[in-house]
Amino acid sequence: MDCKEFQQYISPLVDNQIDENKRIEAEKHLQQCPSCFFDFKVESIVKKIVSFKFVKTACPDVLKKQIVFSLVSQEGFFERLLSYLKIIFFSKYLRLSFAIGLILLLSIIISNPFKKDKEKYYKEFASVVYQNCRELKNHNFPEKTIFTTNHDVVKKFISSNGILTPKMPNTDWSIIAAGIESFDKFHAAHLLFQCEEDTVYLMEFDINKAKYSGYLNFVNEIYSDLKSKKYLELNFYDYIIILRIEENILMAYAINAHNRHPHEELISSLE
């Protein structure tokens, strides 16, 4: 082993991390070369100094206890949350990102996408009602007309009048148009037919039947929202659409927005 090679093995020799063959070679060189012996000696002394004189700082007991406590607390959800928060508030960078996250969260709460969702449901529903009213209008029905999607009613009207009109889009509900004077469930609508003004369109949605249709989501949304209200009023193009729950039936009244009278009558009868 020459000096150049020996230099590589000084540290392993000092630290006793050298394999047996290399150790014998290195020790042989050590005895022959005073310069390398000096280097070896210096490294040994430095190792000794570091090992003996390095002052180990004991971890303070308070800190040990605090850490053990924080570890035990890991088991509980709130404690875990607390320790996360602690980490967050101890670190500048995390603190910053946490603040950004909080701002984002607040902005989400303020903008409330859920509320928008509900509006979207109503819009969708209103558009269905509107669409049907448009289609029905073209049929030139008699002045006093009820439009209904109630299957029992449909059956009755088919047998008595034989008039079957357009289907609700994407549902299996048919819409029937028939001229009737009174029907128990429709007394509110019936009241309106006494008015001199234009036709009020009424549609019924059986909530239970909606379960099997593609409209389940929005009917559910509207239903849960309407349960706590007497009625809900929506403006949709030239129609005012009033939604209301009556004995598990979702009623949709569509009134031409220009006809103030039946609108006011309807509202006062619902209130």
Partner: peptide, 28 residues
């Protein structure tokens, strides 16, 4: 240093005994 110090056997006592803990920490 190497060329000045003739006897490496003395280095042990010379350096080890004369250096303070604080100085070791400082050096590290």
């Amino acid at each position: 240093i190497k060329s000045n110090e003739q006897n490496p056997h003395n280095l042990d006592r010379e350096i080890f005994d004369n250096v303070l803990d604080d100085e070791v920490m400082e050096a590290i």
